[in-house]
Design a protein around this nucleic acid. Structure first.
Lengths: 205, 205
DNA sequence: ATTATTGGAGAGTGCTACTGTCCAATGTCA
DNA sequence: TGACATTGGACAGTAGCACTCTCCAATAAT
């Protein structure tokens, strides 16, 4: 398969594929001469993955790059696999957060302790900053509301882990790409469920 | 309060506030002369809301504009309020989705029917497109997984509605801004819960 | 009277994700 | 064999977004 065929299979313009190759998002094809190379199914999948991650998942190409690096270097043991997957997920858009208030920090620490979660500093910092943001915007998150969200998150997480296959490389793909791609799904479901919970069909126009 | 004071109160540069004024994200202050106007607390809140929505919630300024328009025009009756809030939420980033496969469409229809949800065409279309995206990326969402997500979404939605105050304007703010700002919170909680569900502290570095 | 600030307007910036153009080397088909 | 299309590689150009800068005459503060 040459570039034009790859472009046709994926629906992505040749110019864009060349760009992805240059940026290292796509491994080079196998050269058959000085000005020719062939691509295979793995390239098709990779392009589709990139498109899905930048599309509905909304990642930047830089974030996609990190995710792909993690997927290409899966730990051989099953132990530590989820840790690696987590690191890839957590780093996906590591915006440096401002300090985050002390009050928010304490609430997060209490939540983590109450639920018996482990205290990942990156994630808890981020969470504290997000709660701070909401508070500053005049829409504070009540402890009860936060608890409900946390319970739902646990339910989701259990469901996520139930789908993980045995093979490490597949497991990585499933956890990392699966989580990133179902993030928007979860948010859409939330809106649908809000309509349902608010009394349903009558409200919708 | 003049611009410089507003800037100091919110931590946003004067130039940016001028920009927001120009773009209509911030209502003009009350002019006291030809080259002077005063701003009040509502302006401070508005700036903070805009920053929160573009920050952790990740909305574009165009999306923020739509959300603010909805907040500034709350329906007087409690009936239809949630409908209006929903419309604002749903339109927040109305990327026009490609057709979305027939299979995905049917799965969504079945899910909506099974759970007794109402069939908002915009949301169900979006959901179908997202499932399609995941499938094309090689990370299909199993029916069981989707069901788990839907159940969690219902739980979240019930919690969301429990926090809604009586006053329509406040209710709008709470539902619309609250949902948008807790979207990222929910996703962060999901990652924390995944670490917890995967065996916890041992996995984390 | 002097200095700082204001609203308003327009131009300029930096970043991201492409997109277009050009090239000589190579492949494809007549 | 020749005409034409395609390829990899390099670089410049573009569009959109969210600011940011500069300028201005008219105030406001001291």
């Amino acid at each position: 398969m040459r570039v034009s065929a790859l472009a046709e299979r994926t629906g992505v313009p040749v110019a864009t594929i060349k760009y992805y190759l240059r940026e290292g998002l796509l491994p080079p094809g196998v050269p058959t001469s000085r000005t020719q190379a062939v691509y295979d199914e793995s390239h098709v999948e990779r392009v589709r993955l990139v498109r899905a991650l930048t599309g509905s998942a909304g990642l930047s190409l830089a974030a996609v790059h990190e995710v792909l690096a993690a997927l290409d270097d899966p730990p051989s043991s099953r132990h530590g696999l989820l840790g690696a997957a987590q690191r890839a997920l957590v780093a996906d858009e590591a915006q440096q957060e401002p300090p985050a208030g002390v009050a928010a920090r304490r609430r997060v620490d209490e939540l983590v302790a109450a639920r018996g979660w482990c205290d990942d500093p990156v994630l808890t910092d981020r969470l504290a900053a997000q709660l701070d943001d909401a508070e500053k915007a005049g829409v504070p998150v009540s402890p009860e509301h936060l608890t409900v969200l946390a319970q739902a998150a646990e339910q989701v997480a259990r469901g996520d882990l139930a789908t993980v296959p045995e093979v490490p490389a597949d497991a990585m793909r499933q956890v990392v790409a699966g989580t990133l791609l179902t993030d928007p799904v979860l948010l859409t479901l939330r809106r649908l469920a809000q309509q349902w919970a608010s009394g349903g069909a009558g409200e919708v126009r």
